[in-house]
């Protein structure tokens, strides 16, 4: 699967990469995956799975899924 950490969420990833590719052998709970990657769940405001907004706590990912994460963004 491909995972995009938008906004300041790439701050938490290795070398601050925005995109991460992961090989998942079976459907995996996204929240558990993010904890493993070091992204604090509280900082994730929106999750887009294959173009659709989904609930972080309920979603499983696998195979060719594309996940985009966005933080709560402020003004300016």
């Amino acid at each position: 699967m491909k995972l995009y950490a938008g906004g300041q969420l790439d701050f938490y990833l290795l070398q601050h990469r925005s995109w991460v590719e992961l090989e998942l052998k079976e459907p995996t709970r996204l929240s558990a995956l993010l904890v493993e990657l070091g992204i604090p769940l509280a900082e994730v405001h929106l999750v887009v799975l294959n173009g659709q907004l989904v609930d972080l706590q309920e979603v499983f990912v696998c195979g060719q899924d594309e996940v985009k994460l966005y933080p709560a963004v402020n003004g300016g």
Binding site: G6, G7, Q8, D10, F11, Y12, H16, E43, H45, L46, V48, L53, K68, Y70, P71, V73, G76
Partner: peptide, 21 residues
Amino acid sequence: PASWDLQVRGTPGLVEPLNAG
């Protein structure tokens, strides 16, 4: 992290997250 996006992208970084929401 709260100032990270401003350093890297500046305010143009807001376009995509706001559109997603």
